[in-house]
């Protein structure tokens, strides 16, 4: 059973911040509850007050900003994102990823904001958003600020969010011409054992630049500069591409992977190398389809 708590359901960010100020020390924001209620049940965290963010209109909705940025309200569920025509059109890799998170019940309840704020090292979307150079907006008593996803997670289950701050939205830059973004994972349980996201730009049949992010191997998803660098300049057809993929997979050897239930560090690095090849292939197809 979940230990007792008091529940507040504010209708605006301002009301949520007021509720935060009024609450005692052990207070947490609640969204889908798929992570928070679970750790409370297991006795891993205890909160005497939960502030439910699901009734706040500003945290909902998926839209495209005038500059082409995809804006996803923090309490959008994985299902909302998976089904969104805007996401499917502008960040197909994210829509596909969201359709494969955990199981259908978790996707129906769990939110993108909650996933990122919980900062589980095995998060699916965090890895993709990192590779895309996405950012997010936080609102607190001190005002609003925008942070890169790369700056947000600072460790396992730890983020740069101040306690009072509400995660408002996730902002994904528009794909540039010739850009492809893809993600792949291998999961034996509900969470990935290893995952890789690739963002690359194809110009005149060659990869002009690439970013490779690896998830589930380390405390937080990481960009592996050497892997992106190995893809740069490679032709997207023929042996040259395969040679570059091998080099990129080799570069993952430097990732300080942690062993866990899914397997040893070496094994997980190997999985990441395989996934890198698959994700890069999909990213190239997306990039050249746009060209």
């Amino acid at each position: 059973m979940i230990p007792r708590f008091s529940l507040t359901r504010p209708g605006s960010i301002e009301e949520a911040l007021d509720a935060f100020d009024r609450a005692a020390d052990d207070v947490a924001y609640l969204a889908g509850g798929t992570e928070l209620l679970q750790v409370m049940k297991m006795g891993l965290a205890q909160f005497t007050t939960l502030i439910d963010l699901k009734g706040i209109a500003e945290l909902k909705g998926i839209s495209v900003l005038p500059v082409g940025t995809l804006r996803i309200g923090a309490t959008s569920t994985h299902r909302d994102i998976e089904r969104s025509p805007l996401v499917r059109e502008r960040a197909a890799g994210l829509a596909r990823l969201e359709s494969r998170i955990a199981n259908v019940r978790v996707r129906n309840a769990g939110t993108l904001g909650g996933n990122l704020a919980f900062a589980e090292p095995h998060s699916d979307p965090a890895t993709f958003l990192l590779a895309c150079g996405a950012s997010l907006t936080l609102a607190g008593r001190a005002g609003r600020r925008e942070l890169e996803v790369a700056e947000f997670a600072v460790g396992p289950l730890a983020t740069a969010r101040e306690q009072d701050e509400v995660l408002v939205e996730i902002l994904i830059p528009a794909a540039r011409p010739g850009e492809g973004r893809a993600y792949d994972k291998i999961a034996f349980f509900e969470r990935p054992a290893a995952s890789v996201a690739v963002r690359l730009t194809v110009v005149d049949g060659s990869i002009a630049d690439a970013t490779v992010a690896v998830g589930s191997l380390t405390d937080t998803p990481v960009v592996v500069t050497g892997a992106g660098g190995a893809l740069q300049g490679a032709p997207v057809l023929g042996d040259g591409f395969a040679v570059a993929l091998d080099a990129a997979a080799m570069a993952l050897g430097g990732v300080e992977a942690m062993a866990d239930l899914n397997g040893s560090a070496d094994y997980k690095r190997h999985l990441a190398g395989v996934l890198l090849g698959r994700a890069a292939g999909v990213a190239v197809r997306e990039a050249t389809a746009h060209a």
Binding site: L7, G33, N108
Partner: peptide, 19 residues
């Protein structure tokens, strides 16, 4: 514990009745 809430499958075990 799968139940449908507004036609969507949810885990009744971890879905607050308040919701």
């Amino acid at each position: 514990c799968t139940v449908l809430v507004d036609d969507l499958a949810m885990s009744g075990c971890t879905f607050l009745a308040a919701d």
